[in-house]
Every structure is written in C-alpha cells, then in structure tokens.
Design a protein around this nucleic acid. Sequence first.
DNA 1: AAGGAAATTGAAATTCAATTTCATTTAAGC
DNA 2: GCTTAAATGAAATTGAATTTCAATTTCCTT
Lengths: 148, 148
Amino acid sequence: MKKKINEKKERLKSFMKQKGFKSTKQRDIIANEFLKTGEHLTAEELYKRVSEGHKNIGFTTVYRTLKLLAESGLATERIFADHLTRYEPVSAEEHHDHLICLNCGAITEFENPKLERMQVKIASDFGFSIVDHKMEFYGYCRDCNKDA
Amino acid sequence: MKKKINEKKERLKSFMKQKGFKSTKQRDIIANEFLKTGEHLTAEELYKRVSEGHKNIGFTTVYRTLKLLAESGLATERIFADHLTRYEPVSAEEHHDHLICLNCGAITEFENPKLERMQVKIASDFGFSIVDHKMEFYGYCRDCNKDA
DNA sequence: AAGGAAATTGAAATTCAATTTCATTTAAGC
DNA sequence: GCTTAAATGAAATTGAATTTCAATTTCCTT
Ligand SMILES: [Mn+2]
Ligand SMILES: [Mn+2]
Ligand SMILES: [Zn+2]
Ligand SMILES: [Zn+2]
C-alpha cells in the first residue's frame, strides 16, 4: 500500500513540474494524508485530520490541494445527497458507483460492466453519446437492515 | 392538458386543506405557471416567468411555493451538475432518469424498467435495500452530435 | 358582516460552503 | 545569495438557499 501512495505522489510531482507548480511541504503533508485514507472526504474533514499533526496548515491550502489533486487526476470530486463536495483518491483507472446508507452514512462502492453497457445502449437509442454519468443508490445497508 | 393541470391543482388544494395551509392568489398563480411549463426550473427562473405578469409577487413566495409543491407530491426536486435546485412537475407517478447535454443543456427523460430491475438486483447482492436512486447521463444529444 | 387567531407575504437579513483576495512567505532557477 | 513567480493562510467575498419579521391576508367563529 505504501508503494501505491509513493507511486501516486510521483505522479503528482511530475504533474506539478509539468504545470510549473511548486512542491511544498504543505502539499506533501496534505496529499499524503489524503491518499492514505481512501475515503470520501470533504476539505473540512481532511483539514481537521491534517491540522491535528500540523496546526499551522490552513484550510485554504487543504482546499486548494484537493482541487490540485483532482486536476492532476489523482482525486475525484463527488457530491452526494448532502450536497457537500467530497474527494476520493482515484484507486485505479476504473470507474465505480455508490450505495449510500441513509441511516449510518456508509458508502459502498461497486462496479458492474453489464449495467454500464446497458446505459450506453439506452443512451445511444436516443442518439446521445455519454461522456460521464452519475449513479447513486440511497437506501439501507446490510448492517442497518439487520438492525431493523 | 388543461384538464390535467386542474386535476393537479385540486390535489394541491386538498393537500393544503388537510395540512391547514391557506390558499392564496399568489400560490394559485405560481402553481399554475409551474404546472403548465413541464420543465426543470429553478425558483429564480419560475420567479422571472411569474413576475412578468405579476410584478408584485416576490421571489420568496415562489421559492416557498415550490417547496410546498414538492411536499405535496406535485413536484420533484432535482439537482444536476450545475448544482442548482430545480423542480419539475410530477407527470404521472412514474419515475424517470435524465440525459443532460453538455453542449446545449437539453434534458431528455427516459425510463427503463429493465435497468431499474438490474439496479435493485445489484444492490440486493450487497444486502442493500434501495429507497431512492439518482442516475444522470452527461454527454451530447442527438442534435449536438449532428453539428459536430 | 365583523372580529380575531393563525397563516402568508415579501423585503431584507442571515447562513454556510465555496471561492477569491491580498499581504507575506517560500521554492526553484540562475 | 538574488530574483521572481508561485504558495500560503487569514480574512473577505460570493451566491444560492433559507430564515426573520412586520405588515397583510385568509378563513373560521360569532
Ligand atoms: Mn467512491
Ligand atoms: Mn425530469
Ligand atoms: Zn447503514
Ligand atoms: Zn445538445
């Protein structure tokens, strides 16, 4: 896992160099914390985590670093039903969708090529070419179903 | 079509009576304008339309009437990629999803029972019970594909 | 029809996440 | 080390969504 993070940080570094951006210790700390979580975090949440160990790093820098990570292709921006902007590390290149529990908030990821193919088919029947899509299921997760 | 609108307005009226809400001329005008459009409108957009004929009706009342319509089940709230809250009249009882053109902004609606069934199936494989879902396709519509 | 409680209206104020500004600090090339 | 362009972070701004509140209107009861 450590390897993967370093690999990503390399990618980020080359992206920044190519874009003429500078590498700073703040960015390094923030990117590190972000990449190791693997969760769907808001800038605020990441800021809280980062500032536990580094009280001098500002929210704005965390915010901007997340945007930078998204631009460089290392993070994806996600907005679910709470309307907050969240970021998640881009794991591989693969696309996935989300099951979101209305009770405990748990987010489960899944991918289903058959479903994706069907989507493309449906769209093309309308003469519509898909660039991107958003698919989220809201309901109750296994654990919460158990409790009810 | 006129019939349908009146039918809806009846539904709204009985909902309001049941809830102890009062029927006012503002609400009547706003609901009327909204129900006859059949589009995906923001409160701001509906306000503009309404105030053309009724300069004394305030934005706040339009905003609140849309919320009321949503509560009463006559409107659905939708938020697409521009992050603006839009409302659309609930046509029948049936659910539908959206194809959104990145070029001209056209919104095409579709429903596909087979796709829906597959979604339920996928979710249940995770022990997840779906209450609601969001599915939007972003890309280029037939007309815009033609031009390119 | 008049009275009065309760809801509605609409302008203005507030909220709150997202974004921008700007003075100061820092990184990287020379 | 010097230069300068970028980065930082606190504070200010934005803008849609929502709330507040005094004035007005609805509608139920006499
Ligand atoms: Mn995810
Ligand atoms: Mn629709
Ligand atoms: Zn749950
Ligand atoms: Zn189009």
